[in-house]
């Protein structure tokens, strides 16, 4: 009888939307487990911060100072470019790009199942996190929030086999869909016509279509384009730019374009959800 109850719950996953709310209410129970599971890495982080000699700190300080100088120079240039961009966009009567604000979150767990690329972060609805919110790291797009609890949330990573993200080639604006395939170092672009101008080394950024991810965030670099003469489409693989297996600090993006509607989110998910 309990087996039937379990089967009903699994069936409810398809049929009944309300179950998700029950799930996220229950997931409060999981918070202490994640807190405990994170203790070893917190200890190593603490020792990394507090048990270091003066020499290594000084070296790091020096390196950061240099990095800061370079970045500052870049930012100065960026400011004038942004102003110019805004002016040109005004001339073209098109909407200006708005700055997205971000919230720093820390990774506190990964999915125990190696087939699913889901990570757990330490920010939840109490911090304003919402469903299908985009997540990035310092290098590129990481994924989107799929489940929000009060104090933590789960993020579906772009390489999960149930995830797809609309992208465009930075060089010429060609649009495509980048799908995950269950491997952390690879995305595939599906249905790219054989005549499309796309070569290895092209940068793919989010296109903003679909409404979940704001446009302009780097996603991946094309690694290989193979053309099979018997096939209508190119086989394009790309390597994600975000350090998906190494980043501990992630950024939650609060897009100024507003929270997307549920139909936009559904279009984003692809057929595999």
């Amino acid at each position: 009888m309990l087996g039937v109850a379990a089967l009903l719950l699994i069936a409810g996953h398809f049929r009944w939307e309300g179950l998700e709310r029950v799930e996220s209410a229950f997931s409060v129970v999981a918070t202490p487990f994640y807190w405990l599971a994170d203790v070893p890495s917190r200890i190593s982080q603490w020792s990394h911060h507090n048990l270091r000699d003066w020499r290594s700190l000084a070296a790091e300080n020096e390196r950061l100072r240099k990095d800061n100088l370079i970045l500052q120079a870049k930012v100065t240039k960026m400011a004038s470019l942004a102003a110019e961009n805004a002016r040109l966009r005004q001339l073209l009567n098109s909407a200006t790009h708005l700055d997205d604000s971000v919230l720093i979150a820390e990774l506190i767990g990964v999915s125990p199942d190696p087939l699913r690329h889901v990570v757990v972060i330490n920010k939840g609805s109490e911090d304003g996190v919402y469903d299908s919110q985009p997540v990035i790291d310092a290098h590129g797009l990481v994924g989107q929030v799929v489940e929000v609890s009060a104090h933590f949330s789960r993020v579906l990573v772009i390489t999960d086999s149930a995830h797809a993200v609309p992208v465009q080639v930075n060089r010429n604006g060609v649009r495509a869909i980048a799908e995950g395939g269950g491997r952390l170092d690879q995305l595939t672009l599906s249905h790219v016509a054989a005549t499309t101008d796309i070569v290895a080394g092209d940068l793919l950024t989010t296109s903003g279509l679909g409404g979940v991810f704001p446009p302009g965030y780097p996603v991946a670099v094309v690694t290989e384009v193979t053309e099979d003469p018997g096939d209508q489409f190119l086989q394009v693989t790309a390597r994600p730019l975000a350090h998906l297996d190494r980043s501990r600090h992630l950024l939650l993006v609060f897009s100024e374009n507003g929270v997307p509607g549920p139909e936009a989110a559904a279009a984003e998910e692809g057929p595999a959800e």
Partner: peptide
């Protein structure tokens, strides 16, 4: 199920078996 974030009922079913 809740802690691992998988479909509710999955481990409930398998552990009952």
């Amino acid at each position: 199920d809740v802690v691992e974030g998988v479909t509710l009922g999955q481990n409930a079913l398998s552990l009952s078996v």
